[in-house]
Design a protein around this nucleic acid. Structure first.
Lengths: 157, 157
DNA sequence: AGGTAATGATGTAGTACCATCACGATATGG
DNA sequence: CCATATCGTGATGGTACTACATCATTACCT
């Protein structure tokens, strides 16, 4: 059982190390984890309204306003009016930021290759299956938790 | 190579899900991730001065002051004078908090067992070896980064 | 059409976390 | 005994987020 406990602890450790590494990589720039998440999503989903951004990142629309303010001030992002809905604002990656994101993705891929290189080749398929299974189970547990909470809120109404 | 990228993404996802789960578990209590980290360290290392706490958690001493303030107000922790050094303050876990931490460790173990149960038994040994290898490699990379930064600071002096 | 409700963004106010600078109190080495 | 380092904390500022209220715009409904 001791070994089993180690697996979860290692996973937590890996998560922490990643965060620390990111934070160091962005020190000196106005980029923070939350702002980088916005850039990442824009690179992935393309230009979006702030509302759509808020929904995908699961934060309040008000929060997006502030994050986009900072990114716009830094030149990472531009705001433009929505073509048909005059209430909405479209947020797009600036050209320089797109280049920046490409570099980030390249580094991400390099890091993946490096880390996977540390695993014995014979172990890799099982590792992948195992990690997928753990992620799936965790997603399931979180979904159950969330459903329970939604029920509780509904019961109150 | 697409599969390889997936592994790292899954690991990142697992980290995020864990954080989200923790945050929800503590909503309603005055506990936050940072404060829980303090409790965790105290449960692990025993009563400490605030300075020692700050060093182990790698945050500023000033930050510890605030965290301990909150934990003390919630009754999780007690402050007492250092027996020989009148500048220093010893922070100890309150009895109720010790019980609380035991419960947390139990839940932690239960979650580990649950997640590992989702993995095919034949894959578990390889999964464990793989995760250990990745964590070790990542630790190594972070250490190298840190050493480089330390050198740069030294070069300036 | 005309009124009402929903939506998109933002202002205000408040909480939490973290960092840096400065300071008073205490300890310690020469 | 004095210079210096250490321990905790006040003050200040930046970031991340929330809830509530506001205002313009749009959608819906009879």
């Amino acid at each position: 059982m001791a070994a089993a406990i180690t697996v979860l602890d290692r996973l937590l450790e890996i998560g922490e190390l990643f965060q620390k590494d990111m934070a160091r990589a962005f020190s000196g720039t106005p980029l923070t984890p939350a702002r980088t998440r916005v850039l990442w999503d824009l690179a992935h989903s393309g230009p979006s309204t702030q509302h759509a951004l808020a929904a995908r990142l699961e934060v309040s629309p008000r929060n997006i306003t502030g994050l986009v303010d900072a990114l716009e001030a830094g030149g990472y992002v531009t705001r433009s009016p929505h073509p048909t809905d005059r209430r909405a604002i479209i947020v797009s990656l600036a050209a320089s930021a797109e280049q920046f994101m490409h570099q980030m993705q390249r580094e991400h891929a390099d890091l993946t290759a490096d880390l996977l290189g540390a695993v014995a080749p014979a172990d890799r398929p099982a590792l992948e299956r195992g990690i997928d299974a753990i992620a799936a189970r965790l997603r399931e547990l979180v979904a159950v938790e969330e459903a329970r909470r939604a029920d509780r809120v509904e019961a109150k109404a």
